[in-house]
Amino acid sequence: MRALSVVKALLATLFVCLAAIALADVAVPQLTGRVVDQTGTLSSSDIAGLSQKLKDLETRKGSQVAVLIVPTTQPETIEQFSIRVAEAWKIGRKKVDDGALLVVAKNDRKLRIEVGYGLEGSLTDVTARRIIDEVITPKFRSGDFAGGIDAGVDRIIGVINGEALPVPQPQASHGVDLDIDSISSFAPVAFFGAIFLGGVLRTLFGRLLGSLATGGAIGILTWVLVGSISLALLSSVAGLVIAFIAGGLSSTMPSSGGRRGGWSSGSSSGGWSSGSSSDSGSFSGGGGSFGGGGASGSW
């Protein structure tokens, strides 16, 4: 009898846990780019095209628009889920609130356009509903999800283009046209290239000339791969400094047996590689706020 009671208690606990899991809200996806597709619906070229289009909008108008495709929002409604995502991602500029979010729940056959406070005067609930009904869902019904999303984004951008928004403030770059995406992706290559190439060139030309040659080589490589003169100059200087410092450290290392110097476990202490594998720096919300404006639809 006691064993039967234990089994019943375990089954009851399991049932409660399963029920809790079933009723749990869908987690807000990480904002990894202007287009986040958790269903594999869009091809890489579709995502690249949409992302570039939305990036151009932000550069020109300052407004941010993002697209999210998820399998389902259950047990929440798409309205509850999309406002949670909008509040977490904070699309749009702070105090301008000129963000918009297109959410598609593919398995639920539902979608929503969530609109920030600053766009509610132009991208009204009625306008958002017309974009859904007249542009997006007809293509969805025929199975053309990429075409529907692309056409819907075009209409959203068209509406935002007609809105009088504050001019985007240029990022403080002191006259240097640096691309943060390029820096974050190329930094590890420049860092480790300076170390290994610097070791070879210092052996051939000595510490000073070898470091200068390393900086020049890193700069030329950066210019060839990235196409940015300013980033090439920065990489050249960084390569020179890293190679010169590495040469000084290597000269103080024991020639055999003992513990190696500070490069063994902390070679990335300068911060170059701590986030090199993360895409979170490529796009982030600007602090915009949402109040539930927008429209929903289904197909």
Rank of each mutant, 00 (worst) to 15 (best):
V167P: 00
V167G: 00
Q169S: 13
A172C: 06
S173A: 15
G175C: 09
V176C: 09
D177V: 07
L178D: 12
L178V: 11
D179E: 15
D181A: 08
S182Y: 04
I183L: 11
S184Q: 14
S184W: 10
F186S: 00
A187M: 13
P188K: 06
P188S: 07
P188L: 07
V189R: 01
A190W: 06
A190E: 11
F191K: 04
G193W: 08
I195C: 06
F196I: 13
L197G: 01
L197E: 00
L197T: 03
G198Y: 04
G199C: 04
L201Q: 02
T203Y: 12
L204S: 10
L204Q: 14
L204T: 06
F205M: 04
R207Q: 14
L208S: 05
S211H: 03
T214Y: 06
T214K: 02
G215F: 00
G216N: 02
A217E: 03
I218L: 09
G219H: 04
L221D: 05
W223R: 09
W223F: 14
V224A: 13
V226Y: 10
G227I: 10
G227N: 09
I229T: 13
I229Y: 09
S230K: 07
L231M: 15
S236Q: 11
S236C: 15
S236R: 06
V237C: 15
G239H: 07
G239K: 04
L240I: 07
